[in-house]
């Protein structure tokens, strides 16, 4: 893993001008007219959005912009009022969340969901797909699943090593720190052999020492041919690893483009400044300084 070198950015992802809703040369996810309201509040209202294949796309925007809600809609955890979206050409409207995951579109949660009273290893093994022993009838015959279970265990331990959690494998997940739980959730998601990995604020609450390795892991996913869509507030991380940035504000996509250019756009600065009052001041000041630096260049 080369955490400190500048990662190789994917380019030529879009067709035509980089504007909200622009076409991608090779889209993995195509979203059309997806709208979701909670009472009078329109949480998500995305006209058209394409997520490029085998690239790292960052979804940014102030708190309450609708990023998590969009994740919920795309993964079947919530149903939109209108709209359709397709994953690798297959329409996902009305497809239940577990089937979405089986198709290779896996997500993590903003509020980490470690299975606290299961061991770290069991957490991992749960991620593996097509397990024979997960059928209630075959479960009774260990001969039918022992071998597969052993293979899954090997794979889980390999991944745990990569995420530096292998020494914790026998511990209950409840005993992990917040950052380690984020790592575990990500590693567990990888056990499903996903095509598209959707990470909701993977860095939130992760201490700086772990941040570096998390960055490395996300970059590795791309190297292994996966597509990543992640929500992040840390602009350093976004600029460092994202190939493409989508900016949301008040439910809409207000800008998209490569990180170097999109963060200078007036719409982006407005989006953040507009949300200034209700966001954590520390985070906001951090963001403004980054955006200011970009402007100064």
């Amino acid at each position: 893993m080369s955490n400190n070198d500048s990662p190789i950015k994917s380019t030529g992802l879009h067709i035509g001008e980089a504007a909200p809703g622009c076409k991608k040369t090779d889209p993995m996810l195509i979203i059309d007219h997806v709208k979701k309201s909670f009472g009078g509040l329109t949480a998500v209202d995305v006209e058209h959005l394409e997520i490029p294949k085998n690239a790292i796309t960052a979804l940014i925007g102030p708190n309450g912009a609708g990023k998590t809600t969009l994740f919920n809609l795309l993964t079947g955890f919530d149903t939109p009022d209108t709209g359709e979206w397709a994953f690798l050409g297959t329409s996902l409207s009305g497809v239940p969340s577990y089937k979405v995951a089986q198709m290779g579109q896996v997500r993590t949660f903003q509020l980490t969901k470690a299975l606290s009273l299961l061991t770290v290893l069991d957490n991992m093994k749960l991620g593996a797909k097509n397990q024979v022993g997960e059928s209630i009838f075959r479960a009774l015959f260990p001969r039918s699943w022992r071998k597969q279970d052993a293979e899954i265990e090997l794979k889980a331990i390999e991944l745990l090593k990569r995420f530096k959690l292998d020494t914790k494998q026998a511990d209950f997940a409840a005993s992990l720190s917040g950052g380690q739980r984020k790592l575990l959730e990500m590693a567990r998601a990888l056990m499903t052999d996903p095509v598209l990995v959707m990470l909701d604020e993977p860095m939130a609450g992760v201490n700086p020492a772990l941040t570096q390795s998390l960055l490395g892991h996300v970059l590795d996913l791309k190297k292994e041919g996966m597509t990543v869509l992640f929500v992040e507030h840390d602009m350093h991380m976004v600029r460092h690893i994202a190939d493409w940035v989508v900016v949301m504000a008040e439910g809409k996509v207000v800008a998209e483009g490569p990180p170097e250019t999109v963060m200078n756009e007036q719409a982006v600065i407005d989006a953040y400044l507009g949300a200034h009052q209700d966001t954590d001041l520390g985070v906001v000041t951090g963001r403004i300084s980054i955006i200011d630096q970009e402007k100064d260049k």
């Binding site: 993964t75 995951a101 797909k129």
Partner: peptide
Amino acid sequence: SPWGRVIKGIREDEEAIRALG
């Protein structure tokens, strides 16, 4: 069995289990 593992996982957090397919 692996079936039991899924069951215990559901006890802990069924959304997480759903997200794993």
